[in-house]
Design a protein around this nucleic acid. Structure first.
Length: 555
DNA sequence: AGGGTTTGCCAC
DNA sequence: AAACGTGGCAAACCCT
């Protein structure tokens, strides 16, 4: 059963059941209550059809309602457009409807930034970012576009795969809204302790923390004249001045220079990065504080996830840099009193994915092991690190350094796996497009003939080849993660308010649950992995170890 | 002053 | 070991 739903902007909306033919339209004054009721009415919950989960669902979540599944018309439209090499065209409901009616296609609305900050105050069901022409029946337009999308899915060479992709992409939208709402447990006091320990006490805003100020002074002293270490240009001049000219101030370049200023610069860079990217300003902006039951200050970090925000299908985030939380701050992620975190990390996901999609028996045998790289090392007859470099080189297209002889070995040992990525690379070098396992499609290069005919054309071809080479693996890995997420959230229906998945980064999920439900959460993770593997790859020998760990903190 | 680009580093 | 895929973000830099 599918139910199309449109919000009225005042807490109510319209519902329409979609069986073979659309049913009667029902007007409801309390949309959240109506959705909650319909979720419970049948043993099999409905699939909600809406224009964009990011418009409707956050309000439902704020009202305490969770749904099991949905069809997100905007996300589905983007997948279908991409499949037909029309990346970048507008994908909102209004755009899809306009294309159906051969009308001018509206640009996608720009999502307001910073809903996750400590300062914003969202209003209930306020967001009507409809791009339909004024006066259009929004429910009718939604039903029409949905029906057209089902038809376009059915016409694909392998409709089952893209249907699955649309379903898990849509489910990703649900999970993202839920995670944004619940937030990652983040202890401001612990964060502050870490910062103070490394940088000294918090300075007045705009000033350098004591440790950075001291390092900057010692750097100037070691150079023999005033240097602002934040300025790459000044550091370049300083290195030349002390007799060690370099052509960039990257850490790995400086590391090779033997001069007393280098360790100071490296330490400064490291700490300065922490201060500017995840210092006290970040803490004030992105972590909402509240007082816990025992009087301790608790906090939540509310990332703003962008589902499908990366061409490969990985998620992006906006504001707060949720996907780049430095390891040094992970200690600030702490479970609430009486609760635990369950952290599950899919180790070596990409080579496992390559083993599964390429059907390479030897690589699949290695991917049946807990430590894939260790087994590779046995095959290759070298150490684990070298085997790992060889594998990563194959997937990323590295050719310099040690990579070439390693790749030759890999090509001999894992011919089908290497042919899979080599073939994708050749397609890219020729300006073609490639697809993930479920059908997510790489964007075609823009201005190709001009780009490859002029100077630097060969470099451009190689770069595009590396992109498509990596795309087939990274995009499929992102699909694995989406299926896992979709499966996992469906297995956690009876968790209390605020419990469930609270963080997701490419191949890692973190759950936050009451301590007595830890076992259930671990079980759910294990079951979700089994379902994901079978759903995507059938009875492959490849394993995807998640090794869920129950902890109080993930640092 | 303000916008766009460059540099460099963080994550996976 | 060397600089290879996807990104976000902040500060400096460079222009209008």
């Amino acid at each position: 059963m599918r139910i199309a739903v449109v919000a009225d902007g005042e807490g109510g909306g319209w519902l329409q059941e979609l069986d073979e033919a659309p049913g009667p339209i029902r007007r409801v004054g309390d949309l959240a209550a109506a959705v909650r009721e319909a979720e419970r009415a049948r043993p099999e919950p409905p699939r909600w059809v809406w224009s964009a989960g990011e418009d409707v669902y956050p309000d439902l979540v704020r009202a305490g309602v969770r749904v099991s599944r949905c069809h997100d018309a905007a996300l589905t439209e983007a997948l279908l457009l991409g499949y037909h090499a029309r990346h970048g065209e507008a994908s909102s409901l209004g755009a899809a409807w306009a294309r159906l009616h051969r009308l001018p296609v509206p640009e996608d609305p720009v999502r307001p930034l910073g809903e996750g900050t400590t300062h914003s105050q969202p209003a209930l069901f306020e967001a009507d970012r409809s791009t339909l022409p004024p006066g259009t029946d929004r429910l009718a337009a939604l039903v029409e576009v949905h029906s057209d999308q089902l038809r376009r899915l059915a016409e694909l060479p392998d409709p089952g795969r893209m249907r699955l992709l649309a379903a898990v992409e849509s489910a990703g939208g649900l999970a993202a809204a839920e995670m944004s709402h619940d937030g990652l447990p983040w202890r401001p006091d612990v964060h502050d302790e870490i910062l103070t320990g490394l940088l000294g006490p918090r300075p007045p805003s705009g000033q350098r923390p004591p440790v950075l100020a001291d390092l900057a002074a010692r750097i100037s002293e070691a150079v023999g004249r005033e240097v602002n270490p934040d300025s790459p240009a000044q550091v370049l001049r300083a290195m030349a001045w002390v007799g060690h000219p370099v052509d960039s101030t990257r850490s790995w370049v400086l590391e090779r220079v033997d001069h007393p200023v280098v360790p100071l610069l490296l330490r400064y860079k490291e700490l300065s990065r922490l201060h500017s990217a995840n210092g006290w300003t970040w803490l004030d902006t992105w972590v909402r504080r509240r007082t816990g039951p025992d009087g301790r200050t608790l906090g939540r970090f509310h990332p703003d996830y962008v589902v499908g925000g990366v061409v490969s299908g990985r998620w992006a985030t906006r504001g707060g840099g949720a996907l780049q939380i430095p390891r040094s701050l992970r200690g600030a992620v702490r479970a609430d009193p009486g609760w635990v975190l369950v952290r599950a990390d899919a180790g070596q996901l990409e080579p496992r994915v390559l083993a599964a999609v390429s059907g390479d028996d030897a690589l699949a045998a290695a991917a049946a092991e807990e430590d894939l790289y260790a087994r590779l090392a046995v095959h290759v007859g070298g150490d684990r690190d070298r085997a790992k470099i060889g594998m990563l080189s194959a997937m990323y297209g590295q050719t310099s350094g040690d990579a070439a002889p390693l790749l030759a070995t890999m090509r001999r040992l894992y011919p089908r796996a290497l042919e899979y990525v080599d073939s994708a690379a050749r397609t890219g070098e020729g300006g073609g497009i490639v697809r993930s396992w479920l059908g997510r499609t790489s964007p075609a290069p823009t201005g190709w003939s001009a780009a490859v005919s002029g100077p630097g054309g060969e470099r451009r071809r190689r770069a595009q080849g590396r992109f498509t080479r990596n795309f087939v693996v990274q995009a499929t890995a992102a699909e694995w993660a989406l299926v896992l997420l979709a499966s996992l959230r469906q297995r956690l229906p009876d968790m209390p308010e605020g419990a469930g998945i609270v963080f997701f980064v490419h191949d890692e999920v973190v759950l936050h649950v009451p301590a007595d439900l830890a076992g259930e959460a671990v079980r759910a993770v294990a079951e979700a992995e089994a379902t994901t593997r079978a759903t995507l790859f059938g009875d492959t020998p490849v394993r995807f170890p998640l090794a869920p760990v129950v902890t109080r903190n993930i640092g």
